[in-house]
Simulated assay, not measured.
Amino acid sequence: MATNITITETRGASASAPTATAATPSRKLPGWLWFIALWCFGVTAAMSLGFAFRLLMNATLFAVR
């Protein structure tokens, strides 16, 4: 079974004209930098959660005495 493919072009654009996305510089971060950023975020989140848990445990332990 064959599928018909239709290619459409916008008016005023030719095949040799550069696209608008190629003219703008990309601001993407490399993969290793994303890894470091997410790792730091995870460590910060875990430490802040641990600190909140520590405060809660201290508050409940002193309340029991």
Rank of each mutant, 00 (worst) to 15 (best):
A2E: 09
T3S: 04
T3V: 05
N4I: 01
I5G: 02
I7K: 06
T8V: 13
T8S: 07
T8N: 12
T8C: 03
E9R: 15
T10A: 12
T10P: 12
T10F: 10
G12A: 00
A13R: 12
S14R: 11
S14L: 07
S14I: 09
S14A: 06
S14C: 13
A15S: 13
S16N: 08
S16Y: 15
A17Y: 03
P18F: 02
T19S: 15
T19V: 02
T19C: 14
T19M: 05
A20Y: 10
T21K: 06
T21D: 10
T21F: 05
A22C: 10
A22I: 13
A22M: 10
A23Y: 04
A23S: 09
A23Q: 11
T24R: 09
P25K: 02
R27H: 15
R27I: 14
R27A: 05
L29C: 03
P30V: 08
G31C: 07
G31L: 08
G31T: 10
W32S: 14
L33A: 07
L33D: 01
W34Q: 07
F35M: 12
F35W: 15
I36L: 12
I36W: 04
L38F: 00
W39V: 07
W39C: 11
W39A: 06
C40I: 12
G42C: 04
G42K: 00
G42I: 08
G42Y: 00
V43M: 03
V43R: 00
V43G: 01
T44L: 14
A45Y: 12
A45N: 06
A45E: 09
A45K: 04
A46D: 08
A46H: 02
A46W: 09
A46Y: 13
A46G: 04
M47I: 09
S48L: 11
S48K: 15
L49H: 10
L49E: 11
L49F: 04
L49W: 08
G50T: 06
G50Q: 08
F51Q: 13
F51T: 05
A52Q: 05
A52L: 06
F53Y: 13
F53E: 11
R54T: 15
R54N: 11
M57P: 00
M57S: 09
M57G: 05
N58T: 09
N58D: 05
A59E: 10
A59H: 07
T60C: 00
T60W: 01
L61C: 02
F62I: 09
F62Q: 14
F62W: 11
F62C: 14
V64H: 06
V64S: 09
V64C: 03
R65K: 15
